[in-house]
Amino acid sequence: MLEVKNVTKRYGKNLACDDVSFTLEPGSLTVLLGPNGAGKSTIIKSIIGFLKYQGSITVNGVNNKTTEARRHLGYIPELPSLYPNLTVVEHMEFIARAYKLTNYKDRIDMLLKRFELDDKRKKFGDELSKGMQQKLNLCIGLLPDPDILLLDEPMLGLDPHAIKELKNYIEEMRRAGKTLFISTHIIDSVDMLWDRTIIMQGGKIKANVTRGEIEGSGKSLEDLFFEVTEGIEKESVSEKNVAGEQTGEAK
């Protein structure tokens, strides 16, 4: 279980996250939505331990910056960064060694096949197209098979086959009891997958809603997003849900 409690993050005078609190239950898929500058990437980077912040973030009760917590966390960044002088398969091997994985060869083969990188094994990082780099980025993030996976705009730059494959993979991970936290702008791409959505705006959580809570209303995730962020049909969104969940999760 991942708990984010009263996290506040400032960049100089700019308040990027303001007293953010939520919990990710094991085996759930949470979608993080919000307009540009809402603080989505900041909260993800805080969870993965890149940023200094006020408040607390724990993974199974352990501080997120400890080695123990990091073993359970996985991260797929928005923009791929690869080593220009390592090949595709060497990147995978490198990550396996960094995470001290054992018996990883078959898993590397499986991931490269699923994301159509099998024939690019010997290509260097700087010889791959942007889309291929993003696929390798996904494979690297998925290789350690973490219990909690943070995905920042994972569909960006992927071709339709890769998007479909990623969705299938996400579904498989959820069935396997993994916790997934996806930040995205492409709401359609996660509409069928989510269990809970957190909508951020101006560094604050504006809504924290489960699928069950809006299922009866006939609204889609997109409807909910615009209701919360732009105030369209605001009256139809339960204020209780919006405010209640935020404080409820904080507890």
Binding site: G49, T67, G74, S81, G125, N137
Partner: peptide, 14 residues
């Protein structure tokens, strides 16, 4: 390196 951030900072390495 930029790749260190995404690959090593996120890993369980100290």
């Amino acid at each position: 390196q930029p790749a260190d951030v995404t690959m090593l900072f996120a890993s369980p390495m100290r």
